[in-house]
Design a protein around this nucleic acid. Structure first.
Length: 896
RNA sequence: AGGCACGUAGCUCAGGGGUAGAGCACUACCUUGACACGGUAGGGGUCCGCGGUUCAAAUCCGCGCGUGCCUACCA
């Protein structure tokens, strides 16, 4: 059997994915059990423009672990892949390409431009989706979707039309966030606030018919040109007499009223607020309340309009700001300017400062759609958020405060709004142009030029990908989906909206659970970003350490924000190598062995270490399954790591070694070899959801694996660990006594090794080991394990008696249960030093005993603490007393 | 401004009312027929601070300090 000493991840990674895909293992149809339960996940569709980053790799790892786990459990499992057309980013990307050719989209015209985008998508798009194969993602490629697919576009139109018919979608004027660079409206979720060191300008407005002036404070003086009122709080004594007064707006000369509005905070600034209904969200609302005129002084390019006055028209907004301030200063109306930090709103895409503008757009009344999800979360706690704190609250708070959603975008790439206008400007909303014509009774219609917000189609993703609005078999089978896995930043943008559409159109929630992942930062705790160039490319990590190792690191991130650290990947790379070499050992000693055999007869008849490893294995199965099902990936990974490395490699293989490597072929040797292989094979299955490649690579080499390992639902398939049955915990194999007994063996061995180390005994040198165990059953354990002990501590002989009767010149240690071990070391023992060593140990025990005695002497403790806790402490104290007894005897024997 | 989370070994992080944990790093010894990406044995912690609840607090509660995130009608 030729197996290299070091695991080479690339070879295994290259080998298996293509086969899995070709064999159809990823598709739910592989499951032939008609009664199989269903497990489904739809991928959060990555942007077609993106390339794989750590956040994707993180999410994909969780989705793949869950998918593979449930598939192995016999679920009819679907993980549906796909991507998002990413309206603005894609359009910007292609426009950039055009610019290099000296063209703009307008040179091409709409139709040609869109054709160009599709071409771009084919050539450069979808990097992330392509890279997912490298991750080992077991997605069903036969069901791959794109938000601009014809079918999904139909779903979008259906959604739009239905909402329009119900009055949830309307066309009208509102104050929207406008990006002057991208030349489009944006929703409030596509803008970002950023702290900004700026200035607060105090401007004075003269009161008509008096010498008085009212001072207003503003961060945007240029907007004063569009002021149509000044507002004060109705309870503000300072301004009570001015209510209803008229001010003269400087520079403009417009007469504007002083109005009273609860919105105004008397404590801020001067307590008087300038009101610019056309250029500020709050002022807009105040303007509606007081029926104020809306004067537009800034245009779509963030330049001042004619209405700003001849002095300002055409100026860029910041130029206008300077000029306004200058003029106020000249007029003696600039009271003061103070430094002031405030937040500024920017386009999330291009970082241009947003201009709030009055504009006619399409809007969706989200509040009504949000009612059903709000009801569901408040009364049923559905979907179940993991972690529940704080995300359930974040989601609920959002649903309680929904604003109208600006749907239209002044772009070309995206779903065209299904609205047509006739020559009189009347609007017809319909699923098709023909339908609109029919409604209008004329052929002379023009379609609305705008497209829908990208998130409009995303909101439908779980249902549209499965076939809605048609009642397809997939929709019936896989919807509602099992879990949504995503980062926290799109809970509003996406998670809540999928719930809205799902409940509205199917009356079923879109997913049962929502698992929110942590965020991975760079090693300095900074967010990874293109602009900072501090991103770590998952592909590089795969290349360096292997996909499986990377997946383990990602899985254990769970929901915690984590700084990326290569050291951790390296340690899991080492773990992969450990698995490789453990398997290598098993395979080098596999002659005569078969997976699944070796554990014959009643467990009670098995050797101690065999009962022990099965008990450890089944506890591991129990813990890992529960952990995965509850999204405790960190616990799952840790448990598997320690089971494999500590229990299986460090102890089980070592305790089995002499049987496994016996020189002569015998039924006993074959059985021992089969047992080691069987445990290995179970461990590989447990690890497979996390480490798909190495587990498949090794599994395929094990003697005796095949159809019998497969879950019955896949009995017909070509054997693969992917479709093997995930181990089920068997309570009957959990054996606490065996665990305690092996623990005693481990302690014994460790103490002897400790003596060897402290006494500087050369590794190659053997020593006699004398064990004294007053307890009969413990004595039996040590006696039966004599050969194993001898091997693991390099003993020339192991004697087990009820007490140690060795030479005075021996290093000694006391063990649990009053047992004692001595290593005779004629000539090597410095008696004074040995007494000191044991004295130190005695002192430690004494301190521990004192602490326990103190607690047990406390009447309150004994009376109020649970009885088992008290009993446990008494037990511990008794054990210490036993050790102390043995230690005292030993010390006496050593006395001069 | 509010809300939430976090603060545990040198580092990255688990855990969590009753013995303080892992990986990496560190020290010593070891190339023993699975593995030096390894083995064995070690060292290392006022669990941010101060109060409170409790028989018992690193763990629960309050306050403070520090860090991060989110929300907001910060004119």
């Amino acid at each position: 059997m030729e197996i290299p000493k070091t695991y080479d991840p690339k070879a295994a990674e290259a080998r298996h994915y293509a086969r899995w895909e070709a064999q159809g293992y990823f598709a739910p149809e592989i499951n032939r059990d008609p009664a199989a339960p269903v497990y489904s996940i739809v991928i959060p569709p990555p942007n077609v423009t993106g390339s794989l980053h750590m956040g994707h790799a993180l999410q994909h790892t969780f989705m793949d672990v869950l998918t593979r786990y449930h598939r192995m459990r016999g679920y009819r499992t679907l993980w549906l892949p796909g991507q998002d057309h990413a309206g603005i980013s894609t359009q910007i990307q292609v426009e950039k390409q055009l610019r290099k050719e000296g063209l703009t989209r307008h040179d091409l015209g709409r139709e040609q431009f869109i054709a160009r985008v599709w071409q771009w998508k084919e050539e450069y798009g979808g990097q992330i989706i392509k890279q997912m194969r490298r991750e080992g993602a077991s997605v069903d490629w036969s069901r791959e979707r794109f938000t601009m697919d014809e079918h999904l576009s139909r779903a979008v139109r259906e959604f739009f039309v239905r909402c329009y018919e119900e009055g949830l979608i309307y066309h009208g004027e509102g104050l929207i966030s406008w990006c002057p660079k991208d030349q489009t409206a944006l929703s409030d979720l596509e803008v970002e606030k950023e702290a900004q060191a700026g200035k607060l300008y105090y401007l004075q407005y003269p009161v008509q018919g008096s010498d008085r002036r009212v001072t207003v404070a503003t961060t945007r003086p240029e907007t004063m040109l569009g002021d149509t009122a000044v507002a004060v709080n109705p309870d503000d004594e300072r301004y009570r007499d001015l209510l209803g007064a008229t001010l003269e707006l400087p520079l403009v000369g417009r007469a504007i009223p002083v109005v009273a509005d609860e919105f105004v905070d008397p404590a801020f600034g001067t307590g008087a607020v300038k009101v610019t209904p056309a250029h500020d969200q709050n002022d807009y609302e105040m303007g509606l309340r007081h029926k104020l005129p809306q004067v537009r002084v800034i245009d779509q390019h963030a330049r001042m309009t004619e209405d700003a006055g001849a002095d300002f028209a055409g100026l860029e907004r910041y130029e206008a700001r300077e000029k306004v301030v200058e003029k106020f200063a000249e007029l003696g109306l600039l009271e003061k300017v103070v430094d002031y930090e405030f937040s500024i709103t920017k386009c999330a895409r291009c970082r241009t400062v947003i201009e709030p503008l009055l504009s006619t757009q399409w809007f969706l009344k989200q509040a009504e759609l949000g009612r059903a999800p709000l009801e569901l979360i408040s009364t049923q706690h559905e979907p179940r958020f993991v972690p529940e704190v704080p995300y359930e609250k974040v989601y609920t708070n959002w649903l309680e405060n929904l604003h109208d959603w600006t749907l239209s975008r002044q772009l070309w790439w995206g779903h065209r709004i299904p609205a047509w206008y006739d020559e009189q400007g009347r609007v017809f909303v319909a699923r098709t142009e023909a339908e609109a014509k029919q409604q209008a009774g004329t052929d002379k219609l023009t379609q609305d030029p705008d497209v829908l917000d990208t998130w409009f189609s995303s909101a439908l993703w779980p249902i549209s990908t499965l076939g809605w609005p048609d009642e397809t078999e997939d929709l019936r089978t896989f919807y509602p989906t099992s879990v949504l896995i995503t980062a926290r930043d799109i809970i509003f943008l996406w998670v809540s909206r999928m719930m809205m559409t799902g409940l509205k159109f199917t009356e079923q929630k879109a997913f049962a659970d929502v698992f929110i992942t942590g965020t991975i930062f760079d090693k300095h705790g900074q967010r990874m970003s293109k602009s900072k160039a501090n991103g770590i490319d998952p592909i590089d990590v795969f290349d360096k350490f292997g996909v499986d190792a990377t997946r383990l690191v990602l899985a254990q991130v769970e929901s915690t924000d984590t700084r990326w650290n290569d050291n951790l990947v390296e340690s899991y790379r080492n773990f992969a190598n450990k698995i490789w070499n453990a398997a290598r050992f098993c395979l080098m000693n596999a002659e005569g062995a078969t997976v699944g055999q070796g554990f014959a007869g009643a467990p009670a008849s098995w050797a101690l270490h065999d009962r022990w490893i099965m008990s450890r294995l089944h506890k591991t199965v129990r813990t890992v399954s529960a952990a995965i099902e509850n999204y405790r990936f960190h616990e799952a990974v840790q448990t598997l790591y320690h089971f494999f490395w500590d229990d299986f490699c460090d102890w089980y293989i070592e305790l089995s070694k002499s049987d496994v490597t016996a020189g002569d072929d015998s039924p006993a040797r074959s059985a021992a070899r089969s047992r080691v292989l069987t445990v290995l094979e179970q461990a590989l299955r447990l690890l497979h959801p996390f480490m798909p490649f190495i587990t498949e690579e090794l599994w395929q080499r094990l003697p005796g694996v095949g159809a019998s390992q497969l879950h019955p639902a896949y009995a017909h398939a070509e054997p693969t660990i992917m479709l093997a049955a995930y181990p089920q915990a068997d309570a009957a194999l959990i054996d606490e006594q065996a665990e305690a007994e092996v623990q005693a063996l481990i302690e014994l061995i460790s103490r002897v090794r400790n003596i060897r180390s402290e006494m500087n005994i050369k590794p190659g040198e053997t020593v006699p080991v004398l064990i004294g165990a007053p307890d009969e059953s413990l004595r039996a354990v040590f006696a039966a394990g004599g050969a194993q002990i001898a091997r693991l501590v390099r003993a020339s002989e192991v004697s087990v008696q009820s007490s140690v009767n060795g030479p005075r010149a021996a290093a000694r240690a006391v063990l649990a249960g009053g047992a004692e071990v001595a290593v005779p070391l004629e000539g090597l023992i410095d008696f004074a030093q040995e007494r000191a060593r044991l004295g130190k140990e005695q002192e430690k025990l004494r301190q521990e005993a004192a602490k326990l005695e103190g607690q047990l002497a406390n009447k309150n403790f004994v009376e109020r603490a649970p009885a088992e806790k008290v009993a446990e402490l008494r037990q511990r104290l008794a054990d210490i007393a036993q050790r102390m007894g043995a230690l005292t005897q030993t010390l006496e024997a050593l006395a001069e």
